[in-house]
Amino acid sequence: MQHEIIIAGFGGQGILSAGRIICAAGMAEGKNTTWFPSYGPEMRGGTANCHAIVSDGEIGSPIINNPDILIAMTSPAIDKFGKMVKENGFIIADSSLIEKSRIEATGRTAYSIDAARKAGDMGHKAFAMLIMIGKLIKETGIFKPESVEKALYEVLKKELHGLIPKEMDALCVGMEM
């Protein structure tokens, strides 16, 4: 089983971290993972995306041409990557940030959840990413929630470890959406 996931949005949304959390969680369960970021000038504001692959087998190219799953956090992200999603794949879109019509235009199965708004209610916009990952777990069973907790300890800087219980709450919120 192999999941090829593109996570896309703009700088500051935790796009690159989300990919790393997905990979670290997969790794915690003994799976092979690769993470490939957009790099260079794109780092300086504007769009950001990364490719995360979680696989039971050997991973070939770390670069995804046609993702199984797109996690989209902005409208341009949907426009750019939406149609690349495999016919039998799906999109998880943050409906609090993306116009419905642009999601529909992709012609792909899409789960629209208002993660950013929910995250705001929970006190930190960074929780939106965990809500999205919660939804990913719900739709795929890609890994166990506990593995995400392990991943968070690995990926987040030490000074942010205090936030992890709330991050896990956000994950649960996502898993129920």
């Binding site: 092979n32 690769t34 993470w35």
Partner: peptide, 9 residues
């Protein structure tokens, strides 16, 4: 560039 930038186990 891709090998340098990507993360892997």
């Amino acid at each position: 560039g891709a090998l340098g930038q990507m993360m892997e186990t």
